[in-house]
Amino acid sequence: MMDLAPYLLLAGLEGLVMASVLMLTALGLSLVFGVMRVVNVAHGEFYMLGAVGAWACAQFVPGHPALAFCVALVVAPLLVGVLAYLADWAILKRINYDPEGTIVSTIGMLYIIQQLTLMSFGPDARAVDAPFYYTIRTPWFGYSSYKLFTVVMALVLVAGLWVMLKRSKWGLVMRATQFDRETAQNFGIPVNRVYSIVFAIGAMLAAIGGVLVVPNQQAHYLMGGDPLLLSFVVVIVGGLGSIPGTIAAAILIGMSDGLLSVFFSPTAAKIFSTLLVAFVLVFKPEGLFGRSNRV
């Protein structure tokens, strides 16, 4: 038993890192669905843009990598947020958030973002330096402190988001809009602007996930596919639009995805994920954790 412990600890740590980034990304998808009742298929591309943005910051900001990282953590999500805000204004608002039309349009956005990135950033995967390299020693192995920092960052951000949703005036406005669009409008809530901002916040959460992940994993123009799939899994298993369900599911899926990929091939793990989404939607549309909250 003694010699299994290090492996379990390592797998647990890796799963935790994975889960925390996934939590941020999936919360973005969940928030957009919860408030706006639309599914954003381009969500993974915002994540990718966050990662590519972090790489760009690393190129242009001189000095210590930590500086570039801090700049990236602010600039990349902001730019992505602006992009998402514009996309919402230019496209989604004009089709009146028709649920099916939104999916088709965001598929279009997915292709456009991907191809523009390919044309500018190129087809290669590129690494970004971690802001710090301190290694934490355990009796068996050294572990990157940056990875643990990722976990802490994610927890802080999720807690912040939680407080904002539950305590602030903004959160109240969002929840009112989610509860009943018409009534919210009648109470003078600028529903259209709330939608644009929520869409932007959702994208920013994905972008932050991308910035955080990129010191551990190289940036690539096709890297958005996996987080999109996993976010789907998390959001649907957790119950569409339910934030506590999303958090619980992110931890479960994040922790198990690594294990599945170890015991089976990564492809088999993805087959499992896709079928899980499909079957949950078919047989238990309110999610495994969520309340009754049909699409």
Partner: peptide
């Protein structure tokens, strides 16, 4: 898939197809 509607239907067909694609790779 027809047990679901609208957005769910789109996602379910997408996921089944994706599973099929991944199986051709597997």
């Amino acid at each position: 898939a027809l047990r679901t509607q609208a957005v769910s239907f789109m996602i379910v067909t997408l996921m089944f197809a994706q599973a099929g694609y991944l199986m051709t790779l597997q």
